[in-house]
């Protein structure tokens, strides 16, 4: 990427900024005014739209980070690493939103802030795994080695996190399966009406676009930080 293109914000990104702001406002509007109140759960059910959307985006970007890891190991170019870090940071933030909204929802639904449900535990473990990723990166000075270890760790994480889910699911699950076949024993299940489905799909779209916009900003930040470092080395006469 040419350095001149970095200095100014790309046109498309400016468009995306505005678009994601509008979409997020639209999603909030739909959640509160378009979607009907759920009969059993009441207002707190409205969390569900953002809960599912953040879960989806975080899973998606973390899988992308693992794919970028494979790409980096085959073709070690710095840009893949910058994208991978951006993906993982974004995935962490969204995973955190997901667990927090889930916990708030669980209080009235399951009468507890916290359960040892596979999905809940998996997301918490996922947060711990990727926090460890950040610690690992912090501990390595050589940028190439940092990128290489980051790539390997992201791949390992993408393998172990699903296995964590399956290993815990052998215990009984409490979490409702809203889409697809429902487990009758799950508590807090509800039937989705059409407006609810519209709201959910719109939230998914809004969160994805917003997520991509954030990702792009983070990548630009990564490039700029890099450039600063290069200029610093030049100034120091290296």
């Amino acid at each position: 990427m040419a350095s001149t293109s970095l200095d100014r914000k790309p046109r498309l990104l400016q468009v995306l900024d505005v678009l994601s702001a509008l979409l997020m406002l639209g999603a909030i509007y739909m959640v509160f005014f378009y979607a009907p109140m759920e009969r059993v759960m009441g207002q707190v059910q409205r969390l569900f739209y953002f809960h599912v959307a953040s879960a989806w985006v975080s899973m998606a970007v973390l899988i992308v980070a693992a794919i970028l890891g494979i790409v980096y190991l085959i073709r070690p170019q710095h840009k893949w690493d910058i994208w991978a870090v951006a993906c993982i940071e974004l995935g962490l933030v969204y995973a955190f939103i997901c667990v927090t909204t889930g916990s708030i929802w669980a209080r009235p639904a399951w009468n507890t802030w916290w359960t040892w449900d596979p999905r809940v535990v998996t997301f918490t473990i996922l947060i711990l795994v990727y926090l460890a990723y950040m610690l690992l990166r912090q501990g390595i000075e050589d940028p190439q080695r940092r990128a290489r270890f980051g790539a390997i760790y992201a791949i390992l994480a993408a393998v172990t996190v699903p296995l964590t889910f399956f290993s815990i699911r052998i215990w009984r699950t409490l979490h409702p399966v809203v889409i697809g076949s429902g487990d009758p024993s799950a508590q807090g299940t509800f039937d989705m009406t059409r407006p609810m489905l519209h709201t959910l799909l719109f939230s998914l779209l809004a969160f994805s676009i917003f997520g991509f916009t954030l990702l792009w900003h983070r990548v630009r930040l990564g490039w700029l930080a890099d450039k600063v470092e290069q200029l610093r080395m030049k100034a120091l006469g290296r």
């Binding site: 050589d142 940028p143 190439q144 290069q230 290296r238």
Partner: peptide, 8 residues
Amino acid sequence: SKRFGYRM
């Protein structure tokens, strides 16, 4: 040539 990060 050998580069370590930004340092040659």
